[in-house]
Design a binder for these strands. Structure first.
Lengths: 312, 312
DNA sequence: ACCCCATATACTCTCTGTGAGCATAAGTGC
DNA sequence: GCACTTATGCTCACAGAGAGTATATGGGGT
């Protein structure tokens, strides 16, 4: 065993919805934007989750509801810079355990450096609700086309960015980010190579500290994928909601529009929602009935919902 | 930060098939059966996977093909006993990163303490290929029925062990093991409480060192679940195989029988297999055509196969 | 009071994938 | 040649998903 000390960094992707905007809790640090994170303390924390909840409360003071572990990142060279972690030494090796947490609303963080940020600020190419994003078609794809000069690269590009008839797979957020990283299109890549250019280039989404954008990509991909087979969405909804609210929430997370009638049918036939007597305050047209999550929808292992994509 | 030193244990569930027997690579240590594992060395290992491959080679000398991370277990009280880990001190805190690895065949391990073991040795209640296992109906369920004396416990029991009309969900291997652990039916529970009774009770499956049976349960559940949406199975098959071989392989992993015709139809319509000119040496009836995995089936993100369960 | 507009909600039609059974082909052993 | 075994092909029924059209129910303007 070498002399390098191990440090486990706990990272929380805390997600919530603000109307049609999917948000993630971010903390502004001296060196840039980051997820709430801190070192796991083996003496004080009996489990990872206990440590995580403590950090989130300390750094953002937002209640943490549903929590699930995402992945443990241990690659050298992409770990957290020590500068921002207290009580670590240059020789320490930092590995990151990423967590996904869901909250039913964006409660304003009590700490002023913490803030709810629309996650498409970090991944503008992931939002297809108004059609293919122009940053993708005009900016990213031409550059990736130049980068993909081998058959292997072309195949990966085709598969992850839905070229040549391949359908867009919304859950492959990490694949796409990693491809942009490898192609040197995101500022984190140059930074990890040791370049000190402080050009905060946000043209391809806002960069984050350390490997936090990678963790965020993992979280969004996991959340998008999980909607299909677990009723996890109701962890992000208020107690009462209209079916349109629910659809807008799903669309916000997935980044594309759904077929309204089929979405509703699948919800009701799956028994995930129950109508209440209450009727929503009108929003210009016929008032909508308010629904709530059924008992089934709140169970951990219930099936999710079908997500009928709207076609052109 | 306290004085406790952190140690990351890397654990490999290496799975392969021997005909209709799903096996996992196990190592016999002085204190019992274990998965290949060892401490991650932050000085020597650039990534977790590098460390993992090194341990597996050292302890079993079996080539490691497909590998994926499972979960990181950090709970106090269920970590690895220090006794078996070199260079650790009593105050050290050990967390386990579990990995799943797949091999196309059970190559005999070069180390004599390593061995391929049928995984139903550890989870006899998971094998429904010949109907409901008697150890479940005669032994486990009566005991669990006594244990489930609250509404909450009853609900969990119903859901994970398919009581009262709930269908058996093959991927919930961990849920079932954890329930048996909580109910005090597996020897690991008493051991973790500090009881020193060395009664190696194997009536409810063979126990393992530390939390290794939990990691194994996670791995089997992940593998079972992933079959449906990724063509991962072909990582465990030889280059050429008959469709019956393939079906037996799936049945071995899932632990239940499939509907032959529908399974074949789904395979061919999904384009996962290609017929070759070769015909298998006859096994008593009409000789079967040999197939191989298609290019599609070898891609990482291709869809999996439908698993049409055989009904009575 | 009436009409127009916007949104919510209901109904229908079609197509495909899946569950299930039956029929036929091609070997082996006696 | 016959019985048996395993492989392979075909068909029917049905449920669910995709997609479009029609009807209810509110608000606001004239």
């Amino acid at each position: 065993m070498s002399e390098h000390r191990l440090v486990i960094g706990l990272n929380a992707v805390l997600a919530a919805l603000e109307g049609p905007s999917p948000r993630v809790l971010c903390v502004e640090r001296s060196v840039g934007w980051a997820l709430p994170f801190g070192a796991f303390d083996p003496g004080a924390h009996r489990t990872f989750e206990i440590g995580l909840r403590q950090f989130v409360e300390l750094q953002a003071d937002v209640p943490l509801g549903y929590v699930e572990q995402l992945y443990t990142f241990g690659d050298m060279g992409r770990e957290a810079p020590r500068a921002v972690m207290r009580d670590t030494e240059p020789s320490d090796r930092v590995v990151s355990v990423g967590y996904l947490g869901l909250a039913p609303e964006c409660v304003p963080p009590a700490i002023d450096r913490a803030q709810w940020v629309d996650w498409y600020t970090y991944f503008p190419w992931e939002d297809w609700r108004d059609g293919a994003p122009s940053i993708l078609t005009d900016d990213i794809l031409p550059k990736l086309d130049v980068w993909a000069d081998t058959e292997d690269r072309r195949a990966r590009l085709r598969a992850s960015f839905a070229l040549e008839g391949v359908p867009w797979e919304e859950e492959r957020v990490l694949d796409r980010y990693e491809l942009l990283y490898e192609a040197g299109l995101v500022p984190e890549e140059a930074r990890d190579r040791g370049e000190t250019s402080r050009a905060t280039d946000e043209s391809l989404g806002r960069p984050m500290l350390s490997d936090h954008r990678r963790i965020l990509a993992t979280a969004i991909g996991r959340l998008r994928g999980k909607l299909r087979y677990r009723p996890i969405l109701f962890q992000m909804m208020p107690e009462h909601f209209t079916l349109t609210d629910l659809q807008l929430a799903v669309e916000a997370i997935l980044g594309f529009r759904l077929h309204k009638q089929n979405f509703r049918r699948s919800l009701e036939s799956a028994g995930l929602v129950e109508k209440t007597d209450i009727v929503a305050a009108s929003t210009g047209g016929r008032p909508a009935a308010l629904y709530r999550a059924s008992a089934l929808a709140l169970e951990k292992h219930s099936p999710g919902m079908t997500l009928p994509r709207m076609r052109q």
